[in-house]
Amino acid sequence: MKILVVDDEKDVQFLFEQRFRKEIKSGEMEILFAFSGEEALAFMKKHEHEAVLILSDINMPGMSGLELLKHIKEKYEKPPPIVMMITAYGDDENYDYAMKLGADDFLTKPLDFTSLKEKLKTRIV
């Protein structure tokens, strides 16, 4: 399964790669990275339907995670990819807005990787 992680913090890549080391090694998961909303959209255009799950930060310069979510949910109608939002602020406003736009899940930073792993596994199955 392919997962696209969108975050403007580059170190997120190291974190995910180590956290999912076993899963990556075993080929169970393939994690790709984009460092802005624009980059994520460009990637998705190039590799349509390759990513089945998108994990996106909300607060990013330029296109925000919520805009990216809006774009994805509007453009990719037939099997729209699963989009999970991640934010440093777990406020209701952001949550409500993300849900209205069709987010599949809403996670707050710092990420609890054990529960994230479980969520990912159940989602894919």
Partner: peptide, 22 residues
Amino acid sequence: IAHEIQNPLNFVNNFSELNTEL
């Protein structure tokens, strides 16, 4: 500022947690 501090702190927490496991 809160956002800017929260991000590095998250990394500090995440990486040290990771190191404990490692």
